[in-house]
Design a protein around this nucleic acid. Structure first.
Lengths: 185, 185
DNA sequence: GTCTATAGAACGATAGAC
DNA sequence: GTCTATCGTTCTATAGAC
């Protein structure tokens, strides 16, 4: 792994843990085992490096979501596979976490990957739900787009509640409640 | 309003906007129109002042939620009143926002108000849902506690999606989707 | 491409006058 | 109770040797 890649990987971790405001170039360099010179050689500054790391976090999320959707055959199975997939709940979401960061949302370049990721995720989930509504697995009057957004929100909000309580319990309960609402006949 | 109260009010605003990590004593003092001496006279430091501000934010949230629950007579009306109440969506939730902050979740004293607030909110919402399930307004097999947690998560996640996209739309859609799931017969 | 040295500002806090 | 002065550290970035 090149020094450049090490720097990106360290920044991914730190952004996930501490957000943009809470992540310093010095901390990035130390975790990457690189000096200041390396960082400012490969990137113009903190924002530039953060952008690369955010894009990588977004790509990773997309890949693991796609993998979950591939599990199961029925629409409900595929949605459940995504919602119930293994997660480090108390660590939260590497992408959603950044949406609360003031420096991210006010910078169009840094915010763009967030918007794209959630647009894609909501769309992908809506497709699966629409499939289920079409083949009778789910009610035909179900609004796929709105329901997809609700489910993504449950995940993101589940992280917030779990971190607030210090335990995974609210996250699991939120998912369980959502699946129950979706599944009842 | 005393200088002490001004300091707390400024900190409430700044914590909401920028989180704990992103809020500096200097910024608090400037917004409050007070000097360093005042702040360190009334509070032992940043964490002490933040605790007072977080508690106040939590109390405010609780009061406005209680007000929303008082609107409407049926259970569904009361839940809807809470979910649809006017909000500055792109500003996010003053309490939930802090759950993503590393310095908050690792400090038991600072995290406690978050946990208490969401425990209370989930419980309060569960009561209303249980009422609806008991009187036939909602399905009798509805799990009030899990559903309540799901609804609170939808709100918190809705803020995340709205801030990611820069518009209120995903928030509204998430709420709409949740109410549709809850309301269908 | 990586290192060390250094810059100027902001960080959180303390001291002491009034 | 509030002010200004100051402390030692960290922040983000630049300079220049190797």
């Amino acid at each position: 792994m090149s020094t450049r890649d090490q720097l990106i990987a360290s920044t991914q971790d730190l952004l996930w843990e501490r957000g943009y405001v809470g992540t310093s170039p010095k901390a990035i360099q130390q975790r990457a085992g690189a000096g200041q010179g390396s960082m400012y050689h490969h990137f113009t500054g903190k924002a530039d490096l953060a952008l690369a790391a955010i894009r990588q976090n977004a790509d990773d999320l997309r890949a693991s979501a796609e993998a979950a959707f591939a599990q199961g055959t029925t629409a409900v199975e595929r949605v459940s596979a995504y919602l119930l997939r293994e997660r480090d709940v108390l660590r939260g979401c590497p992408v959603g976490r950044l949406a609360l960061d003031p420096e991210i949302v006010t910078n169009p370049e840094l915010r763009a990957p967030l918007e794209e990721t959630f647009d894609w995720l909501r769309g992908r989930l809506a497709e699966v739900l629409a499939e289920g509504a079409a083949n009778g697995e789910l009610p035909s009057d179900l609004d796929p787009a709105a329901t997809a957004t609700t489910l993504v929100a449950v995940l993101q909000g589940g992280y917030v509640l779990a971190r607030s309580s210090g335990t995974v319990e609210p996250f699991d309960q939120a998912i369980r409640g959502a699946l129950a609402l979706l599944g009842r006949r």
